[in-house]
Design a protein around this nucleic acid. Structure first.
Lengths: 220, 220
DNA sequence: GCAAAAGTGTTCTTTGTACACCCATGG
DNA sequence: CCATGGGTGTACAAAGAACACTTTTGC
């Protein structure tokens, strides 16, 4: 039985949620993928796929779901979130081209890869409700305005900045750096960084991202 | 690459959450399992495992996670919830014995199967917060007292019956049957049945099971 | 008539949501 | 001096948690 590992890599650029695709020699657009096996862990295979296809290294990933690929294969799907600014793309040996696509304007994908993207998106949105996913999509230092923009791109709706600030700061998911950054016009913004460490998921801490909400459920 | 499908089947009996295990010819306790392949869908393979190992038919299942089984295999884990009363156990060809174990008093399992059980349990508890999982663990007709007992077994804590009734009835996840059942001493209870159909996951409907709460996150 | 489980409402606390103004900078 | 984004607090609405007593039956 052939086992494939496919990775849906998301980023937010210019306020738009985007997905990474590679164009293979045949001209079709594909998710970064690799074959599992050879004594390698699935997580490692997923990391290899991101590295060999798109030049991405050291990104954090999470397993999503395992899809059938009849007649005799299956695909273990992964979700990765990165800051595109810190990870320049470098097409690997088997890719003609690697680039970002707006999540709502994808080309036709092979097989059932659109299901992988759709499920990754659903999971990503669901996680905004209880995990500080935005920090994975931002540079090391960021302003709360940038963070809010990421959540707005993920959720597709506007958030109230006063409530957003209160909740994020109250949840303790970010630390103030002490520095500020002037961003063209307007008052300079304070810079924050992730307080690091995953955080416990109980009602008290969930307040963080609760402006925010969505449901999760397996695909197909 | 060898792909195995393993199923963690849960039930609630006598107020205790239990897991189904089979003892193989070698004497070790195992989860019901089968090899994937032969053009069969993973969901079908999971159904076959439950049928061939334990005689369970027509039970609903959901994929959980895919685990590494080094050096050259992997295991696609499934979660199943059943009412033990409606599904008598019948050991299949490769099982010496099939029985229920209290979730907190399991024998030693092979390989990484304890991780499958642990993750299944975590997922099951997380789902109580937004899905009417109890109806899968109850007979077709049941009382609210029985339903509450199931949630208490799942969550390991007591719930307030007034709030529980208000929330469950308000969420519309059960229909009144009109019948009542005298259960020995005490006032006879009304019988309900599942209102059927999965239900939308938005804040309004989540109230149902919110006495109830927990977090989800991938294993290992 | 008493033990045992079913059934029913209200109060209080916490959480979420809506909302308006002043501040610091660049042009 | 004005346009632009950053920063702060309060009032109202909704949801969740805590809580006591009456009803119907078997024994």
């Amino acid at each position: 039985m052939r086992v494939r590992v496919e990775v849906a890599v998301f980023t937010v650029r210019a306020g738009v949620l985007q997905v990474l695709l590679a164009r293979g020699p045949g001209g079709a657009w594909l998710l970064p993928a690799a074959d599992a096996g050879s004594g390698e862990l699935l997580d490692q295979t997923a990391a290899s796929a991101a590295r060999d296809v798109a030049g991405l290294r050291g990104i954090s990933m999470e397993q999503l779901f395992t899809f059938d690929r009849l007649p005799d294969a299956m695909s273990v799907a992964y979700l990765a979130l990165i800051d595109a600014g810190r990870h320049p793309l470098a097409p690997g040996p088997d890719s003609v081209e690697v680039r970002w696509f707006a999540h709502d304007d994808l080309p036709v994908l092979v097989d059932g890869q659109d299901a992988v993207v759709a499920y990754g998106l659903a999971r990503l949105r669901a996680k905004t409700a209880y995990a500080p996913v935005a920090v994975n999509l931002l540079p090391e230092m960021f302003t709360l305005g940038e963070m809010q923009a990421v959540y707005e791109a993920l959720l597709g709706r506007d958030l109230d900045s006063r409530n957003f600030r209160r909740d994020v700061l109250g949840a303790g998911v970010v630390d103030e750096s002490g520095e500020v950054r002037a961003e063209g016009r307007g008052r300079p913004a304070r810079l924050y960084r992730s307080a690091g460490g995953h955080f416990a998921v109980d009602a008290r801490e969930r307040r963080a991202a609760r402006q925010i909400s969505s449901g999760d459920d397996p695909p197909s």
